[in-house]
Design a protein around this nucleic acid. Sequence first.
DNA 1: TATAATACCTGAAACGTTTCAAAGATATTT
DNA 2: AAATATCTTTGAAACGTTTCAGGTATTATA
Lengths: 336, 336
Amino acid sequence: MVTIKDIARKSGVSVGTVSNVINNLESVKIKNKEKVLEVINSLGYRPNKIAASLSKKKTMNVGLIVPDVSSPFYSDLIKGISDALEINGYNIFLCESNNNIQKEEKIIRDLLSMWIDGIILIPVYSKKRNLHFLENIEIPVVLVNREIEGIKKDIVIFDNFGGAFEATQFLIKNNHKKIPILGGPELSKSFEERFQGWKEAMEENNLYKDNLIFRGDFSVEAGHKMMLEALNKADGIDAVFASSDLIALGALSAIDEYNLKVPDDISVMGFGDIYLSKFLKPSLTTIRRPFYNIGKTAVSLLLDRISGNTQKKITKFIIKGKLEIRDSVKIPDQPE
Amino acid sequence: MVTIKDIARKSGVSVGTVSNVINNLESVKIKNKEKVLEVINSLGYRPNKIAASLSKKKTMNVGLIVPDVSSPFYSDLIKGISDALEINGYNIFLCESNNNIQKEEKIIRDLLSMWIDGIILIPVYSKKRNLHFLENIEIPVVLVNREIEGIKKDIVIFDNFGGAFEATQFLIKNNHKKIPILGGPELSKSFEERFQGWKEAMEENNLYKDNLIFRGDFSVEAGHKMMLEALNKADGIDAVFASSDLIALGALSAIDEYNLKVPDDISVMGFGDIYLSKFLKPSLTTIRRPFYNIGKTAVSLLLDRISGNTQKKITKFIIKGKLEIRDSVKIPDQPE
DNA sequence: TATAATACCTGAAACGTTTCAAAGATATTT
DNA sequence: AAATATCTTTGAAACGTTTCAGGTATTATA
C-alpha cells in the first residue's frame, strides 16, 4: 500500500506539497508538480478517500433511500438522481427500505454514521408516520414523491391532482360523458389526489356521480376486476379513467372480454406512463410522470443545501405531468 | 460532534473500552457496558464509520457498476444484489457507466480510492474490450451477465444458448416447422448465443434454413420491421422466435397489421420475460431470466472472496432460464 | 545591494476510530 | 495468605489524509 508519504519521500518534497498536487492546488511549482505526478504514476499511487474524508469532514457521498429498487417506477427517478449527482462529483449509497418503516429508520441511522453529505429520501408510505426525527438530523435531507405532514424539508412531488384533472378534462372535451374512475388503494395519498382531480373535473361539468367510483389497488388484476364491475353495474360508459397504467392494462383486457373495442366503444385513460404503455394495442393515452426530472430537481435542491444554503426557506417543487395522447382515447372528428 | 473520547470521559472508562462496547466485544463487564450505553444514548453519540474504516482498513462497502440504472432489465438484478448485500451488512455504491468504457474505467478507479471491499461489475459491451487492468486490482471483482474473453474473475452469466435451444425446441415439439429468428444486433454476444441455440435446435430437426434469419437490434421497432420482412419474404411461417421480448412485442403488432392471429395463425416465442409480457394480449410465452438470483449468486461469489477465499479457483456460474408457457404459442391438442 | 513583498514549501497536529501490549483487578488454586 | 491464572481495562500508536502557521526561496522595489 503506497501512501502520500512514500510519494513525498521519493519525489523529495513534503507530504503537504504532495497533497497540494493531488488536490490541484495552484501554489505548486510546475517542476515539483511534474516530479510528484511522475512518482505517483510510477508507484501506482491511489489517494485514499477514506482518509481524506476523515480529515476534511466531507465525504462527497449522498444516501439515496428507495422503497423498492426494482420498481420500474423508481428506476427513472434513480437515473435522474444518479446522473445529476455524478456530474457534481458525488457518489450514491443506494439503500432499499423495502417499504418498511423500521428499516427506513435504520438505514438513515446507518447512513449518518457513514458521514454522508446529504440524503435523498423517497419515504415509505404510511398513515401513522412519524418522521419528525428528521428534523434533528444535521445534514440536508430532500424528500421525493411523498409528502409528509408537518415535515420541514425540501421536497419534490408529482402533481397528481393536476394530472388527473387534465386527463379527465381531456376525456370530457372529447365528448365523453360517463367516465368512471378505477381504483387506487383507499389509503394512498397519490390516489386520493388523483381522485380529487377526476372529481373536480367531473363536477365542473356536472358529470360527477357517486356510483362512478370503483376501488382497488394499483395492480393489473385489480384493474381487471374493477373494470368488470363497472361494466356490469353501469351501462352507457363511454370512457374510463384508470388511476394507474397497470389498472388501465387490466381494464383493457376486461373490456376485451366484454367484446367491446377500445377506443371505439370505450376510451381508456391511463395514468403514470409505464414503459410499455406506448406499445400496447391500442397504445395507451396517459399522463406521463417526468421522473427523471424529479430526480434532477431533488439533487439540485440537495446540493444547494449542502453547499451552505442552510437558511433558505423550505422549497416545495410540484412537478407537472404531461398528457401523452395515443390511441386508447377516441377523439371525435373536429369540424374545422 | 460527540466522539468516542467524550463518551469515555463521561462514563469514566477508557476509549478502548468504549470501542469494545460499540463493537459488542464480550470482554466488557456488564456494569461498564451499561454505563457506556447510557452515556451514548444521553449524548446521542453516533459512531463514525469513516474513522473506523480508516483504522480497520475495511469499509463494508461494495461498488456496483451498471451500464444503465433505469433499464428495467437491470433493476431485478440490482435488487438481488442489494438484498443479498444488505443481509450481510454491506452497503452499495451504485455507479452507472452509461454504456461508456471510459466512464467504466474511471468509476473503477474512483471506487478503488474509496477503499471499497469488492466490486460487482456488469461490463459495458464492446468488441475491442480490454479489461485486463482488472487483473491487477487488489480487491475481489465479480463479473455479471457479460463474459469477457480471458479475464480471470468469478462470473455469473445467463444461459442464452440453452434458453434459446429450449424455446425453439418447445416450438418444434408443438408442431411448428417454419420458425424464423428475429433479431439481435450482430455484435451482441448474447444474441449470438441465442442464435446458436435456435440454430442447433433447428438443425437437429432439419428445419434450419439461411433465409429464416432476420437481423436488427433488440427494440420494439426493430421487431416490427423484422416481422414485416419475414411475412413478406417467406410464407408458411407458423411460428417465430423473437430474441427479446421487445422484439416479440414489435412482431405481435406487425402480425396484427397483417390481419393474422396469434397464436392461431402464428405462434410467437419471446425471450427475456420483461415485466409486462404476461399482461399482453395474448400473453407472451417466453424464457424468463432469473435476474434476482443472478444478483444473489454474484454477491455470494463476491463475499466468498472478500472473506478470504482468494486462492479458490475461478468460478463461472451459468444460470439457466425458465420457459414461461403462456398464450402466444399454439399448443395442439394432445391425444391421450 | 539591501529590503520588502511574494511565492512556495514544510512538517506537525488533527480528524475519530481500532488495536494491542502491558498493567491492573479479580478469581482460583495451593 | 501467597501464588497463579484469568478476566478487564488502559492508553498510546496507527490508519492516510488535510491544514496551516511558520519558514525559506524567489522576485520586485528602492
